[in-house]
Each structure stands twice: as structure tokens, then as C-alpha cells.
């Protein structure tokens, strides 16, 4: 079975008035790096939160490996939210222990190797690290899991070019080959070379799901310029 994620008739309405997703249908297969692209407020983060079980759908459902979001799916989904979620008084070493305890697919040696290559001391407390370093620690923890699905919410927003290269490199060299990486971004040109597929969503609707090479071949332009065309105001 190559379907990893099934999104069926998914609708999310906040507070009975604000519709974030409307009857969305999607299938995500294994072994891909997929860009979830859309302007701000298009429903990207809502979809991601539902996949992670942080929000309940108003209607419809999502299935990951055939499971609804819950303990079974969470054991195989590695999620990088937009925010850093650490308890600031914890040491880096304690975080590694935490992940080792809770996620069976976590590889502490891999995390230690990556931390060492960035000269991050395991005995440092999170609160003594800079914002950029915290984000890198979080990425390292997330990418040190042998997950089935990596969900990265805006992994390169607001970082400098060197950090961006580091992040992209870390994603490419660490994701599990049979797994899929779903990453949302609005900085398409920075990331389109690493994508197999793109999903465009707009106002909670699916606009397009296609491979990057198809877009380049058929449209004769980059995903970034095609995106600008599709979402032109």
C-alpha cells in the first residue's frame, strides 16, 4: 500500500463562522517530498494541525496509514510546528532522553551527531540558546526520527540563507527513504528544487496537485512563477 495519507471531504469551520478548509480531498503517497503551498490564511496550518491531531475536523476525516489521528498515528508522524515547543528550563540532553522515551523510532546517536556538528553542548539549557539555535535543535530532534511522515510547518520562514541551506540539507540527508516529507511554505523559490510534488491550496480548496517536473515541462516555468500566476491578485 503506497497511500500514506488520505484526506476525505475534510471541512474545518472555526467558531461556526470562519471556514478554514472546505471539502478537501487529497491522497499522499510514500517516498516523496511534497510542498504544501498556499498564501497566508489558505488553510495550510489548519490541515497540518488536523493531521497531527491538534484539531478536530468539523466534517470528513483524515487517515494516516489507515488510522485516524491518535496515539497510533502520532507514533509514526514527526512534526515540526512553526513554534518552538520546549520547556525552557530543560537541557538539550534531557530533551534527547525525552524523545528516546516517547518515540520508539527516535535515533539518539543521530541527534547527538548532528548537535555535535553544530557545536551545541548537550548540557546547555534551552533558555541559554539563541532563537535560531533552538529552531535547529528542534529540527534535529524531528529529523532524528525514522518516521513514516514528517510534517514540517514553514521550516525555512524567517531564517538567514546559511541556516536555510543547513535546514534543507538536514531534511534531505535524514528523512527515511520510505517516508514522505510534507512541508508547508510560502517561500517557494527557496525550496522548490527539493520537492517531488506540490499541493496548492487556496481558501481551503485544493487548486492543484502535481509533480514539480510536470509543471516545469508543461508550463515551461518554475513552480514559483506558476504559483504567482495561479494566485495572482
Amino acid at each position: 500500500m503506497s497511500e500514506l495519507v488520505e484526506v476525505r471531504n475534510l471541512t474545518k469551520v472555526y467558531d461556526k463562522k470562519k471556514t478554514a478548509l472546505q471539502n478537501l480531498n487529497l491522497t499522499i503517497t510514500r517516498g516523496k517530498i511534497i510542498g504544501l503551498l498556499g498564501p497566508n490564511g489558505s488553510g495550510k496550518t489548519t490541515l497540518i494541525k488536523i493531521l497531527n491531531g491538534l484539531l478536530n475536523p468539523t466534517e470528513g476525516e483524515v487517515l494516516i496509514n489507515g488510522n485516524k489521528p491518535g496515539p497510533a498515528s502520532k507514533a509514526h508522524v514527526s512534526y515540526l510546528p512553526e513554534r518552538t515547543y520546549f520547556q525552557n528550563s530543560m537541557k538539550v540532553r534531557e530533551l534527547i532522553e525525552y524523545f528516546t522515551d516517547f518515540y520508539e523510532d527516535f535515533r539518539p546517536e543521530r541527534a547527538r551527531e548532528m548537535l555535535a556538528s553544530l557545536n551545541i553542548n548537550e548540557n546547555d539549557r534551552i533558555k541559554t540558546l539563541s532563537k535560531g539555535t533552538r529552531e535547529k535543535v528542534q529540527l534535529i530532534l524531528v529529523m532524528s526520527r525514522e518516521a513514516d511522515l514528517y510534517i514540517l510547518d514553514e521550516p525555512i520562514a524567517g531564517v538567514d540563507p546559511a541556516a536555510r541551506d543547513y535546514i534543507i540539507r538536514t531534511i534531505i540527508t535524514n528523512y527515511n527513504e520510505n517516508a514522505t516529507v510534507l512541508l508547508s511554505t510560502h517561500l517557494i523559490s527557496d525550496i522548490e528544487n527539493i520537492l517531488d510534488e506540490v499541493i496548492f491550496i487556496k481558501e481551503g480548496h485544493l487548486v492543484l496537485q502535481s509533480t514539480v517536473e510536470d509543471i516545469r515541462m508543461i508550463q515551461g516555468k518554475s513552480v514559483d512563477s506558476y504559483f504567482r500566476e495561479v494566485f495572482a491578485c
Partner: peptide
């Protein structure tokens, strides 16, 4: 493939 892809900053499948 992984190393080359990482160097190039491109998708490993590509």
C-alpha cells in the same frame, strides 16, 4: 544519491 542531492540542494528522487 543522498549526498549529491544534499550538495545540489535537490530532491533525492530527481
Amino acid at each position: 544519491v543522498r549526498e549529491l542531492a544534499a550538495d545540489a540542494g535537490v530532491n533525492p528522487n530527481t
